[in-house]
Design a protein around this nucleic acid. Structure first.
Lengths: 350, 350
DNA sequence: CTGAAAGCGCTTACAG
DNA sequence: CTGAAAGCGCTTACAG
């Protein structure tokens, strides 16, 4: 079990003429050890590069940790958040036997107050670590400060809030995903084409994030004046509103390609289908069911996806590693920017 | 630790009026238990859905398992196999504390005998499970039968050999990756273009695998007679030979796009650069350094990659799960078919 | 066919 | 400031 050549607390105790209890004390930086013996013990630990047996530690530590996950609820508007939810469950299954439980809290993407309420609930119920999607930047900041005050580690997924004491951010690199969108548009657009960038969002919720992607998209074409870029911000997230906006635009402009900066691309696909304008190329984000349908039918050419399941999975594991193993965690972890088409989506893993 | 409401061997023993040793016997189907008590014990196990604590089991079982991995050596010809090697190391690091050691054996991609020799060595050194890349189908078959005879579970990665008793195959879906190649070619090729499929391999080693990809590529264009497809099999893997072949072809045909069915696409890229024919679109496989350089420079448009690191990583974990947890393992596990471009390769995880 | 006891490598009261 | 002892949930000889 103990790999050959490895030592344990017993060996350390023997070599330093103390009991294993004392060894344990310095291992966990607990007080009540004289400087002299502490020094002796640390020397041996370093010399033999002692690595604790996590199995034995977990088994002996009866303590079970409680993590909290705060993410948007799956809604009729978007099923996107099903994937992170799956990731949480998957991670929990793997670490449950190590005494970790994960409690899930859901908020409404269209209601900042629901975020605040759930955050309060987490604080009340106590948790040893928190995973959250800081969708409402201001409220997330408040919550983050409260967690930091209580020394509870927390991890952001899906979007970042700069300047916080989060253990880690695990999610997309927005700018670069937009840049990639530009490249894909370039691949499939002809010479001298006109692109339309569509941001669908109730301002100001996640509008900022969409702008980052638009910025990247535009940056790709900078200095290659082959493409003309139009844009529209649609601030309602229901189909009729979107239809109205697009109708107006397409009546007055000849568009070759549309780049939708989030998962709501299926609305645009539906619109193009209804109008018989499938020749317009379409690129969007996220592999939700409704988008896949249009990928299948050929209305959507590319989806860009950033492993929503894995973001949450890794977030939970990061908290576990920090809390149980005391391991370091990368402060920023950008997910791969995956390109999904009709011909590879079946093999994609979130 | 023991999640609330869960029982352990002690509880089972108490409820059935036996000792925990007897419980342990039926838990592991060991002989020496009367049918009557066995029945009693099994009933309780079922009723309470007893789940063993893997931590405690691993800790108590001093036994350390030895896995063997048999893969091609990294060579000057291709660094592709560095990635699986990394995957093996990563998996080993994660499960080392559970008493698993992995021994690595390397063979020469151009020498079937080296495969045979290493396989023999594995048999001699004994192993509790084997991960292998069955590159030479016939020899792999022989080895597989020997392993099956000894009841040693084994997992294939990277390529499959049908009809064997492998625990699992973890790797690409060749046909579909070729099909995706077709779609990408379609995206970036103009109307009415001519494609050249290039298979670079010493026949018959891995030629069969390349043909599968070609087949998929061709299938994509079936019934859309916009594209003319040429092909060439280059049976030498050195640059001068490849150059000669390509020179002859490009002198006599007008080619718009080249699809190279393996990682040797960098040779073709180099050729196009030397001839100043970078306008020819180029699609190939695998994210090895030399290919990335050409992706950067724009000579290669797309690389298709199938997570070589993760194949090996998962293969080792599959063996671990089978051996330690007795878990079931999927017989076929196809990896995602990732699309790599200049703009997303930096975020790609093998 | 069965059980008492020791042990895996740690942690945790408790006593001094 | 320090140590002896019990215990986490299992497995493994050993004895009967």
């Amino acid at each position: 079990m103990k790999p050959a050549g490895r030592i344990g607390v017993k060996e350390i105790a023997k070599m330093t003429n103390v009991s294993i209890a004392t060894v344990d004390r310095v291992l966990h930086n607990r007080p009540g050890v004289s400087p002299a013996t502490e020094k002796k013990i640390r020397a041996v630990i370093r010399k033999y590069n002692y690595q604790p047996n996590i199995l034995a530690r977990t088994l002996a530590t009866r303590k079970t940790l409680k993590l909290a996950a705060l993410i948007p609820a799956v809604s009729k508007e978007t099923t996107y958040w099903q994937a992170p939810l799956d990731g949480i469950d998957e991670a929990e299954n793997e670490i449950r036997q190590f005494g970790i439980a994960v409690e899930k809290y859901f908020f409404d993407l269209n209601d900042a107050q629901s975020f605040v309420r759930q955050a309060r609930k987490i604080l009340r119920n106590k948790a040893d670590g928190v995973l959250l999607a800081p969708h409402f930047a201001n409220d997330a900041e408040t919550f983050s400060r409260q967690l930091a005050d209580k020394q509870i580690p927390f991890v952001y997924i899906n979007s970042d809030v700069p300047g916080q004491e989060n253990l880690s951010y695990i999610g997309p690199h927005l700018y670069q995903s937009g840049y990639l969108g530009g490249q894909l548009a370039d691949f499939i657009g002809g010479e001298k084409s006109t692109c339309l960038v569509v941001n669908i969002s109730r301002i100001p919720d996640s509008y900022y994030y969409l702008l980052k992607k638009e910025e990247g998209f535009r940056a790709y074409f900078e200095g290659r004046n082959k493409v003309k870029i139009l844009k529209t911000d649609i601030q309602k997230t229901d189909y009729p509103s979107i239809k109205k906006e697009l109708t107006a635009l397409l009546n007055t402009h000849k568009i070759d390609l549309i780049f939708v900066t989030n998962s709501r691309v299926f609305y645009v696909a539906r619109f193009l289908e209804e109008r018989g304008m499938e020749h317009i190329r379409l690129i969007g984000f996220d592999m939700i069911d409704r988008n896949i349908r249009h990928l299948e039918e050929g209305t959507i050419d590319f989806l860009i996806s950033q492993k929503p399941r894995e973001q949450a999975y890794r977030g939970i594991l990061a908290l576990y590693n920090k809390l149980i193993k005391g391991a370091d965690v990368e402060k920023q972890c950008f997910m791969p920017i995956d390109i999904i088409t009709k011909e590879n989506y079946r093999f994609y893993t979130n």
